[in-house]
Amino acid sequence: LTVQLGNLEWHFDNPEQALKMAEELAKRYQLKVEIDNGTLKFK
């Protein structure tokens, strides 16, 4: 699973870790998370 923020990307083997990080980033920057083809992206 990949977490993508702008041109930064983090790759996780563990989806739970990816979701946890995505939630933290979304909270911190007040963004919405969307999943696009196995990639978590922020809007």
Rank of each mutant, 00 (worst) to 15 (best):
W10F: 08
E9T: 14
T2H: 07
L40T: 00
Q30S: 10
K32M: 11
E16F: 10
W10P: 00
N14I: 10
I35C: 08
A18S: 02
E9K: 15
L31R: 00
I35S: 06
E34R: 06
T2P: 03
L31H: 04
G38Q: 06
G6D: 04
T39K: 14
F42R: 01
P15V: 13
H11P: 03
L25A: 01
G38V: 05
K32D: 09
A18H: 01
T2N: 07
D36K: 09
R28N: 04
P15T: 12
F12G: 01
A26Y: 05
Q4D: 03
E24D: 10
L40H: 02
E16H: 11
G6A: 05
V3L: 10
K27G: 05
E23S: 11
A26W: 07
E23N: 13
P15D: 05
L1N: 04
L31P: 01
V3P: 01
L1P: 04
Q4I: 14
D13L: 10
N7Q: 10
L8H: 12
Y29T: 04
N37H: 07
L19N: 03
Q4V: 14
K41H: 08
K20I: 10
I35G: 02
F12L: 03
F12A: 02
E9Y: 13
K27A: 10
M21D: 02
A26T: 04
W10V: 07
E24K: 15
W10S: 01
N14H: 08
Q30D: 12
E9S: 14
L8M: 12
A26I: 06
L25N: 00
E23W: 12
L40V: 15
M21H: 11
R28E: 05
P15N: 07
V33H: 02
Q17S: 10
E9Q: 13
P15G: 06
D13P: 11
V33E: 00
A26G: 07
E34I: 15
Q30Y: 10
R28H: 07
D36S: 13
L25E: 00
Q30N: 15
A18R: 00
L25V: 06
E34V: 15
H11A: 04
D36Y: 11
A18I: 05
L31Q: 02
F42G: 03
K43W: 13
D36M: 11
D13T: 12
Q17K: 12
K20S: 09
E34H: 12
E9D: 05
A18L: 06
G38S: 05
L25I: 13
L5Y: 09
N37K: 09
F12D: 00
R28K: 13
D13E: 11
D13K: 12
L5E: 01
L1V: 09
E24I: 14
N37T: 04
Q4W: 05
T2F: 06
E23V: 12
L8T: 07
V33L: 11
K32W: 09
R28Q: 06
A18W: 06
Q4Y: 08
A26V: 05
N37Y: 03
Q17Y: 12
E34Y: 15
E16R: 11
F42I: 15
E34L: 14
W10Q: 01
T39P: 00
K32S: 12
D13F: 08
H11Q: 05
E16L: 13
Q4N: 05
W10D: 00
N14M: 08
M21P: 00
W10A: 02
T39M: 12
A22I: 08
K43H: 11
P15R: 13
K32Y: 11
E23T: 11
E24N: 12
L19G: 02
G38I: 04
L25M: 07
Y29E: 02
E16M: 13
V33Y: 15
K20F: 05
D36I: 14
K41I: 13
P15W: 15
I35K: 07
K41N: 05
L40C: 13
T39W: 11
L19Y: 13
T2G: 03
D13H: 09
Q17V: 11
T2I: 12
L31N: 01
A18M: 06
E9W: 13
V3D: 02
A22W: 05
N7T: 13
K27T: 07
W10R: 02
N37Q: 07
F42Q: 03
I35A: 06
F42V: 15
Y29C: 13
P15E: 09
K43A: 11
E9P: 01
T39A: 05
E16Y: 11
K20W: 06
L19V: 08
F12H: 01
A18D: 00
L40D: 01
E24S: 12
T2C: 13
F12M: 03
T39I: 15
N14V: 08
Q4C: 10
D36P: 00
N7V: 10
A22M: 06
K32I: 15
M21V: 09
N7F: 14
G38C: 12
K27R: 13
A26N: 02
D36A: 10
M21T: 04
Q4H: 07
A22H: 00
Y29N: 03
H11K: 09
G6N: 06
D36L: 10
N37E: 09
W10L: 08
H11W: 11
V33D: 00
K41Q: 06
L40N: 01
K41G: 03
N37S: 07
Q17I: 11
K32F: 11
N7C: 11
E23K: 10
K43C: 15
K41E: 03
E9A: 11
N7A: 11
E9I: 14
M21C: 15
G38L: 06
L25H: 01
L31K: 01
T2Q: 04
A22V: 04
Q17W: 10
E23Y: 14
L31G: 02
V33N: 00
E34W: 15
A26H: 03
H11M: 05
A26Q: 04
L19F: 13
D36G: 09
K32R: 10
M21F: 15
F42H: 03
A18F: 06
N37P: 01
K41S: 08
L25K: 00
Y29S: 02
F42W: 04
K27S: 08
W10K: 02
H11E: 03
A22G: 04
I35R: 10
L40K: 00
E16T: 10
A22C: 04
R28W: 07
